[in-house]
Amino acid sequence: MPNISVGEIKAGSKIIKDVITPLGGVLFGKGKIILPRDIEILQAFLIGQVEVEGAQGEDKTTESAKPAVKQQAAKAGALINESVLAKSNSPLHDEYEKMLVLIKQSYRAAAAASLPIFELRSQLDLLITHLKDYHVLKFAPRVLFDQEYNYHNAVLSALTSYRIAQWCGYPQKDWMQAAFAGLLHDVGNTKVDEALLQKPTPLSAPEIDEVRRHTTYGYQLLRNVTAINEGVRLAALQHHEKIDGSGYPLRLDGSQIHFYAKIVAVADIFHAMTLGKAYRKAQSPYLVLEQLQKESFGKLDPVIVQTFIQKTTDLYNGTRIRLSDGRHGEIIFTDRNNPTRPMVQVEGNIVNLINERELHIQEIIA
């Protein structure tokens, strides 16, 4: 059959058979013309061969590729989220991965060239079309490579910021700009020494100062970018400011912080704490929500935080969960005054997490 290895594909080649990921999703459809960035997407999905017009070769793609993906990912330092493998053929995951590749390329090029803002907008539009399938507490990337944490945080913060802008009743014209604010809030990290961003041990005072400069670097990089508004630029600058004036870089108080930055601050903290890293396990989303609630007293915008918590925990009764002690159960009632500590049924018994403070929901299964 007309196969060619991904390493030999040239931009402009035409795909003559759907490209299927080893996990079962359609990555690229028949008839697609390969663009330069598509080659990196194929590599990111660990696709070995593709059938293209005019190529000669033998089809060697088999079911054995599935365990091979896990082996290759492990060698590359990836954390594979087993709980989402069954859902990984969803269009949301497909567009998420394409957005991830594009933001990685864009961040890497940002210091030397202008951001491909219209291409970013196009892919963000495609991603947002599947927002109905995105649940903040349930969604997880298929594979999280150690070195790609910042890119995952960017894409997830974009989705969550869009949701928060909706939930808080901001005008529709602000929803996509809030998503851009989430997507680009950490673009200044491209000018920070990557070794500092990946350092597993505590930073020294000078190193902390350098990492904190990512906020001003980000504003500078976005200053002349078209198709985004000033709020997006200010979100890059202000997303670490606190409403009591204790944040950085300018120690602004709540009245001086743009509302995009207040939205992104919540999304960024949530995903920073719930994404796993090579040197730190992902934290329970429910414990992170409780931490956000504490931060809403003087640090984060209380209305945004409370809206975020109420909306994300608004799950239907019967939602299956895993508790911190490893037992599985299902939610049977959520007290709106204590949304992070619902009543769950476990092994035929009712567990009230309001009273069982040593327990918490570790993960939503389905």
Rank of each mutant, 00 (worst) to 15 (best):
R212W: 04
I243C: 06
L203T: 02
H240T: 03
L275W: 14
Y286P: 15
T216M: 15
F270D: 03
G188L: 09
E207K: 13
Q198W: 14
Q293G: 10
Q291G: 06
E230P: 06
H185L: 05
Q293F: 08
M273V: 06
W175K: 14
D186A: 11
I243H: 07
V266H: 09
D301N: 10
L300A: 13
M176S: 12
V305G: 04
A227P: 09
P202R: 14
N229W: 09
Q291W: 13
I228T: 02
Y219C: 01
T216N: 13
Y286C: 11
S255I: 11
N189H: 15
D174G: 13
A205C: 05
G218A: 03
L292I: 06
F297W: 12
N224W: 09
P249V: 08
F308W: 08
N189R: 14
P206T: 03
K191W: 07
F308M: 08
F180E: 06
I228M: 04
G254T: 03
A195Q: 08
I228H: 07
H271F: 15
A272Y: 14
D193F: 11
L234Y: 14
E230A: 01
L292E: 10
Y248D: 02
D253M: 02
S296P: 11
P200A: 14
Y279P: 13
L222R: 15
G276T: 02
L222I: 12
T274E: 08
L222V: 15
D301Y: 06
Y217D: 14
H271Q: 07
L287A: 01
Y260A: 07
Q177C: 09
Y260N: 10
T216S: 15
T216F: 13
Q283P: 11
K294G: 10
G231E: 00
P285F: 14
N229Y: 08
M176F: 14
R223K: 09
T201W: 05
A195Y: 05
G182R: 05
I208W: 13
L196G: 01
H258T: 13
D186S: 09
R212D: 00
L252M: 02
A261T: 04
V266M: 05
P302Q: 04
V192R: 08
E230W: 12
V305C: 07
G298E: 03
L197C: 08
D301P: 05
K191H: 11
Q306C: 09
Q256L: 04
H185F: 08
T215Q: 09
P285Q: 12
D174F: 13
M273K: 07
A235P: 00
Q291E: 07
I208C: 11
P302M: 03
H240F: 06
Q306W: 08
L222T: 11
L237I: 00
M176Y: 13
A282H: 11
G298A: 03
E207V: 04
A282D: 10
V266W: 10
D209S: 01
H240I: 04
Q198A: 11
G218L: 01
S246D: 00
L289I: 12
A178C: 09
D209R: 03
G276E: 04
V266D: 07
G245F: 01
L203N: 01
I263L: 03
V305T: 01
Q310F: 13
F270T: 04
L287R: 08
